[in-house]
Design a protein around this nucleic acid. Structure first.
Lengths: 338, 338
DNA sequence: CTGAAAGCGCTTACAG
DNA sequence: CTGAAAGCGCTTACAG
């Protein structure tokens, strides 16, 4: 591999000058810069990441904390982040946050502390207070997306409003017996996304003088949506509509309805949240959010913090719940049966 | 951040000894090792990635070349790789290979040459000969998974056998009019996965004295499967069965069949490939492969190469098409209509 | 605008 | 088994 020094020799300048010419930092004459760049190109010189990092303190690398990589939503977000960072010369290193306490310990007390990244994007990884403290100890800029953990400001959609939008849509169609499938959280987790959706749902019903026709807790998977919907639909108070807190839950509910011989939307309306790539094929009415764009936004935000050299103290964005969402009405919702 | 030197002072040894105690390289007495580790733990010392890399030439980081991050299959593979590497102290940096020539140029001539990784895993990213040459120039161990590009040995399933399995299943059910949806590749791309599947399909039919009842090229998306299936089903020679080269294509075909009022499997049988998480819900008969496990295997393979310090020349695994697959018969395939 | 030199924080032959 | 010292390949005040 070609070193800085070889380029310097070839261009007849000092290594300092090569560094300046290639990095764009510090003053340098146009003529010299060009000569150096030509030499570097001709020799195929590329700076060594570790040497550059060690000397400068900058890594040109952003860490991304992700939960299950196998969920469509997070894959889309990651894709958006990558799309934004790659053209700007930043690499991405992936930190998979699992539920395994041992892995988490290693992640927070070791992996993240090797100073491999200039900043972090934390997706909705459900960190506990301890984890958040560890994160903040890193002294790195952090941008949250969704609801990474208590006390971490983040870019978010307004999930109460999302739930309200979905619920109002059902109310307008005349539904009065509306059930909900969401995540069961211990009380008090005020900023948790599923909790906010449940709250928006309940508040909207309450304003209409109604009570939920049922609530069934479920993880955000098709399987669980299926199970939960079966339970709701076979209960004594059969809902005419279900608000599922994610599209994957809604897909599961659709399969359950089909199995039970219910026609959607004649017998049952279903609305989800996300705008999953498959929702169109199911004709699913959903409140779409735009994870790829969210990823790009997060990428933009972390670079802004990193490149202004914000101090850790002011390095977290203000909590910003203004990410866009949009009700997309398709064929899984219709007028309430009379 | 605590430095090696501070740990050395606290433990009353030289920095060399601390390095040895913490890295496990070189001889050291048990007593000293323990004393140093205690000091390091107490001070919360973690080695600096860039300093360690610069001095040792090892990065403890593996690069993964991925195509579209938004495909279920690749997200699963990535998840498997991460699962294998994290517990072994390796980070993952992600290199998103897009179709944009400018991004590709930057990736191969710059990003990958910064010496940020000890080895690379290349998923099916459809590299051209030039890209492969660039990859090999890196002097790094590379493990391919699927069919990353011409001339790159890889861990693979035997895709001809996969197609044969699916096709024989349809033949055994009495189907004689079988169409195929796959990727249209220019001729000659011998190692390309879709091409191998098409070949396996055609060979199996030929052995039974049959010709395909149609072929419709399509990208591996639901949308495209939908479009392709509509075209096949509305053609003059309507097939009684479709072999789709991926589950996503098969999902699209299912939607198309439903739209056209065809009952599956009474009027039409459909078989896919992958074992997608949603295939069970669709009742899709499929030849499952196991992308998460494949990721783990690839992670294992690249670490083996990295840690034995294999020279670049012998650093590619022999082409190994022995990854497991399995026919899963569900309800989208049935006896041919008479 | 340019260069000489110190320094970033480790690792590892080498010597003892 | 342990330490002194060179060196990994850059960047950046400092001086001119």
């Amino acid at each position: 591999m070609v070193s800085l020094e070889e380029v310097a020799r070839r261009a007849n300048v000092s290594t300092a000058t090569v560094s300046r010419a290639l990095s764009g930092r510090g003053r340098i004459s146009d003529a010299t810069r060009e000569r150096v760049r030509d030499a570097a190109d001709a020799m195929g010189y590329v700076v060594s990441a570790s040497a550059s990092s060690l000397a400068s303190g900058r890594t040109q690398n952003i860490g991304v904390l992700v939960p299950l990589l196998d969920k469509w939503f997070f894959a889309m977000v990651l894709s958006g982040i990558a799309n934004h960072l790659a053209p700007r010369g930043y690499d991405i290193t992936l930190y998979n946050v699992t539920d395994d306490p041992e892995q988490r310990r290693r992640l927070f007390s070791s992996s993240l502390r090797r100073r491999r990244v200039d900043g972090l994007v934390a997706l909705s990884v459900d960190l506990d207070a301890d984890d958040v403290a560890h994160l903040q100890d890193l002294g790195l800029p952090v941008v949250g997306l969704g609801a990474p953990g208590p006390g971490l400001a983040a870019l978010r959609v307004d999930d109460v409003a999302v739930a309200r939008t979905a619920t109002e849509h059902l109310l307008e169609l005349g539904h009065r017996e509306i059930a909900h499938i969401g995540l069961d959280k211990e009380a008090g987790d005020e900023h948790d996304i599923p909790t906010l959706r449940t709250r928006g749902f309940e508040a909207t019903l309450a304003e209409a003088g109604l009570e939920p026709a049922g609530f069934e807790p479920a993880d955000f998977t098709i399987d669980e949506g299926h199970r939960a919907a079966r339970k709701l639909l076979q209960g004594e108070r059969r809902p005419t509509a279900i608000f599922a807190a994610s599209d994957e839950l809604a897909f599961g509910a659709l399969f359950a309805a089909r199995e039970l011989g219910l026609d959607v939307p004649r017998d049952l309306s279903i609305v989800g949240v996300d705008g999953h790539e498959m929702s169109e094929f199911f004709g699913l009415t959903t409140v779409a959010q735009f994870p790829h764009d969210q990823g790009e936004r997060a990428g933009d935000a972390i670079l802004a913090l990193v490149e202004t050299g914000s101090l850790p103290d002011d390095a977290s964005l203000p909590d910003d719940a203004s990410l866009p969402f949009e009700l997309i009405v398709r064929t899984t919702t219709g007028p309430a049966p009379r």
